[in-house]
Amino acid sequence: MLRLFFHTQLQLGLAQATVSALAALTVVLLAHRRQIHLEAETLIAMARGLVQIIAVGSILVVLLRAPRWTSAFLLAGMIMAAGATSARRAKGIPDAFRVSAWSIAFGAGSLIALMTFLGVIDTAITSLVPVGSMLIANAMNTNGLALNRFRSDVLAHVGEIETALALGAEARNSVSPYVQASFEASLIPAIDSLRSLGIVWIPGLMAGMLLSGARPVYAAIYQFVVLAMIFAASGLTSLASTMLIRGRVFSPAEQLLLQPGRS
């Protein structure tokens, strides 16, 4: 229907963005009516996302002509930004940014490097940056989920953790059940994506490959390859971040720093 009113691609794009943003804002409104306040966070995230993707779209032309080594800097910048974004889910935990950035660099960064070396990801900037960004973005989401779950679980079980400490448990061991639960919970989206591939959703990458002339079977297999890499990057990231963060909630004298009301 929008095509009847908007005739240039830019106008149509803006109209489509407006309609989809309205759908997202409806959720915010419904949440507001249930006393759940997502307004500021959602509006800022949407505005940022739009500006960022337009900026990337605008420099894509330059990127396509840039030398291959520039992808390493772009991906490193994405890892830093992903670390900063997901660290916000660990409010009150010291060093959350450093833990997030290192974990994403370990999980997504090392996998991108390995897969590029093995030839699973093409070294062309047009392939490496989009596929790499998918791995980093998913690692970021997984990391955010893991940290958020860990933080909530620790805050909900302060009594149990301090009881274990009072009985002489090593600090890191006293939060082990919550490390494990956070790791498992953070991987649910990646596992479900892999499980429902082709049945519940046909990802955009496959559609793009088909449109650009790839053979359907290869496009399908490569989609599986990407999702398997996403799972691996997410899993490694979550494993690293949950292992690193568990020591950060304690002082050197093994006192629990994360306490309700303090964070």
Partner: peptide, 23 residues
């Protein structure tokens, strides 16, 4: 007590809390 291992200190000074928090 800053010269004692926290875990050894807590073993020596055993604490029972308001709620039992059994595992």
């Amino acid at each position: 007590f800053r010269n004692l291992e926290p875990r050894e200190l807590r073993r020596k000074l055993g604490m029972v809390t308001q709620r039992p928090y059994l595992f």
